[in-house]
Design a protein around this nucleic acid. Structure first.
Lengths: 218, 218
DNA sequence: TAGATTGTTAATCGATTAACAATC
DNA sequence: TAGATTGTTAATCGATTAACAATC
């Protein structure tokens, strides 16, 4: 076991992927898994997986592999998912609506417990079991519910403003779906989840020499 | 200018971010920008930006910086966004619905031109200007419209099957919102856009020592 | 000319992978 | 015991950053 000196973001981002697959194994009642199997299923190098896990402790058994249930417990603890983490969603448009559906997926770990929108007609609407609240209530609700993570699904021109409010309300991390670079104090963690840049970078990998569609529907 | 030997994915993923900001500058009629300014606004090292761009050509002018319009043109060409790229969306649920809204954002570059769903009652529904089609029409529509990129927004247990069909239909790249690792031939580019893993990795960065909410309600 | 800023080389830093002793 | 597989060190590979000559 190493001290938690500095775990790289790349490592941290793989942990949820491990967790997801382990949950799958558990559902299928598979008791044990090796780094080799994990690597094969997740398209990762087995040595990398062992190294990732070893940053946090000696979770495996030589000659055997990793106990699925035990490893799930450990990764959940590392990711702080062994306590409920409350999440606020800001922006009750189509995307916000879609994401609030994922409460089922996030199930026992995180939970979107509040939704906000600045557009008056949206306020008061029901999204599943939640009622859209006005921005004015954001800070008090965040503090009351102990919300620690915010999701931004407002239009680009509102995003920085919303981020500022979230930060002022004591939020510690933001998942940002708006296509802008947010400026926040360094103690606030930001992940960009912008779908348009994802899609545009994919275009780079398309095959060349197809400037025109050959069999265009003339 | 270097040969396009092997451009790393990290570089390719930054290009749309540059493009987005440059579009902004253009709208504000700012004619020129230096790597230093870009770096400041995008939280990147100026040397990295110069290096990224230099992989593809000598786009700047010493002592001056980069001409905004010219650089936009160049990056659009590199990303193949100077031709229209048609995109298919598979899965007309909430998330699919939300993403099809972004056609406005993607505007003149990419365009979602077809939506599919396997659930019979969904078929025939209108999503903006598109009609949801049954999966049976996927291959023929993809070929007819010259669609080259697919977006997967179906539930996790359907995702691999959908990916297989997309690949068989000649798709070249996939943006996958389902929380699974897709297995595809190596010539098909996959980007994972799974919101749950994003969110879970954020939890890692929360401050410790807050196992219980201090001022729990009541 | 003087000041600014590129493109690029060299230095640094960090992440991935290979290899293997330890051990179940 | 023999086979499997971990945890970890060392080797490799790749990406970022610093520095600077070239030049607008």
């Amino acid at each position: 076991m190493k001290s938690d000196n500095k775990i790289s973001e790349a490592v941290v981002r793989r942990l949820p992927v491990y967790l997801r697959f382990l949950n799958d194994l558990q559902k299928r009642e598979i008791p044990t898994v090796s780094s080799q199997e994990l690597g094969q299923k997740l398209d990762l190098n087995p040595a990398q997986i062992r190294k990732d896990l070893a940053y946090f402790g000696d979770f495996g058994r030589k000659g055997i592999g990793y106990d699925v249930s035990y490893l799930i417990e450990k990764i959940r603890h590392i990711l702080k998912l062994d306590q409920q983490i409350n999440v606020a969603l800001v922006g009750a448009g189509n995307l916000g609506h879609a994401l609030s559906n994922y409460n089922a997926y996030l199930k026992d770990t995180m939970k979107i417990t509040a939704v906000f929108d600045s557009f008056a007609p949206k306020v008061g609407q029901q999204i599943h079991s939640l009622t859209v609240q006005p921005m004015e209530e954001l800070e008090s609700t965040i503090r009351k519910q102990g919300i620690r993570i915010g999701i931004i699904t407002v239009p680009d021109f509102e995003a920085q403003n919303v981020a500022d409010i979230l930060v002022a309300s004591g939020i510690e991390a933001i998942l940002n779906f708006a296509p802008v670079i947010l400026k926040t104090p360094s103690y606030v963690r930001i992940h960009a989840a912008d779908f348009t840049t994802d899609l545009q970078s994919l275009a780079y990998y398309l095959q060349d020499g197809r400037e025109e569609i050959e069999d265009g529907k003339q």
